[in-house]
């Protein structure tokens, strides 16, 4: 896959935490509607790559272009707005606010963007239906299972119809049956909205839901489609 027409392109990314090199010239590109798995052993730099791509952590050097714009030239406010409205996030653990009900959790990103409560919860319920957790709308995160919680988290990540969904080990805490269902629903939902998915995983069965994979090792990335 060539970077031409890519939604998000990173070149020669370098990032060090003190004496530890996390990224050492990593490259990445993704098209709208594409699911790309980022694989590699623990400590290889794959989560750092995701954090840089999502504008959570600035790289020491290198370029990240989102939708034609260099992210380094954006202000913090612009990057935050981008993360709130154009990016969605799913992590392995602890993403839901325990005091809020599930539907309030899912509606939260819309509320933060200024959508009215009624409208936000209506959209939220729609996404919860797609992820098959709408019956849990009035429950709190403490009252539902891990697999259900992860589907609620995926609903929340998709509620703003993001153009890029960043998922870091989204099924890491689930058994295989629940993990696969989450992956099925997540990729289906993302494909139906033409969202790009950056999927960090060390599990092959999860990566099998992607269109292609890149491998990160010692801070360097390898696009397997260009190798094979």
């Amino acid at each position: 896959m060539t970077p031409t027409g890519s939604l998000l392109i990173a070149t020669d990314l370098r990032k060090a935490y003190g004496p530890t090199t996390a990224l050492d010239g990593a490259e990445f590109s993704i098209h709208p509607g594409e699911v790309v798995a980022v694989m590699g052993p623990s400590g290889s730099g794959k989560s750092t790559l995701l954090h840089c791509l999502a504008g959570i952590v600035p790289p020491d050097s290198g370029s990240i272009i989102y939708n034609g714009r260099e992210m380094a030239t954006m202000s913090d406010t612009e990057r935050s707005a981008l993360r709130r409205s154009e990016f969605g996030f799913v992590f392995q653990f602890g993403q839901l606010v325990p005091e809020l009900t599930c539907v309030e959790n899912v509606a939260l990103p819309l509320r933060l963007n200024g959508t009215s409560r009624k409208e936000a919860e209506k959209t939220a319920l729609g996404w919860m239906q797609r992820l098959e957790v709408d019956d849990l709308a009035r429950k709190r995160p403490g009252e539902i299972s891990g697999g259900q919680g992860q589907r609620v988290a995926v609903s929340r990540a998709l509620v703003t119809s993001p153009r890029v969904l960043f998922a870091d080990e989204p099924t890491g805490a689930l058994d295989s049956l629940n993990g696969e269902r989450v992956m099925e629903l997540l990729t289906e939902a993302a494909r139906s909205t033409n969202a790009a998915v950056v999927l960090v995983t060390h599990e092959a069965r999860v990566a099998a839901y992607s269109d292609r994979e890149i491998v990160v090792r010692d801070g360097k990335s390898r696009d397997m489609e260009r190798v094979v």
Binding site: E184, R205, A207, A208, Y209, E213, V215, R222
Partner: peptide
């Protein structure tokens, strides 16, 4: 040697994608 292993991984994943799709 890492190239051989990377290519093999890619080939395995290719097959796993086909199976995952068939399963779905």
């Amino acid at each position: 040697a890492a190239d051989i292993l990377d290519s093999q991984r890619s080939e395995h994943l290719r097959m796993m994608r086909i199976l995952t799709d068939r399963k779905r």
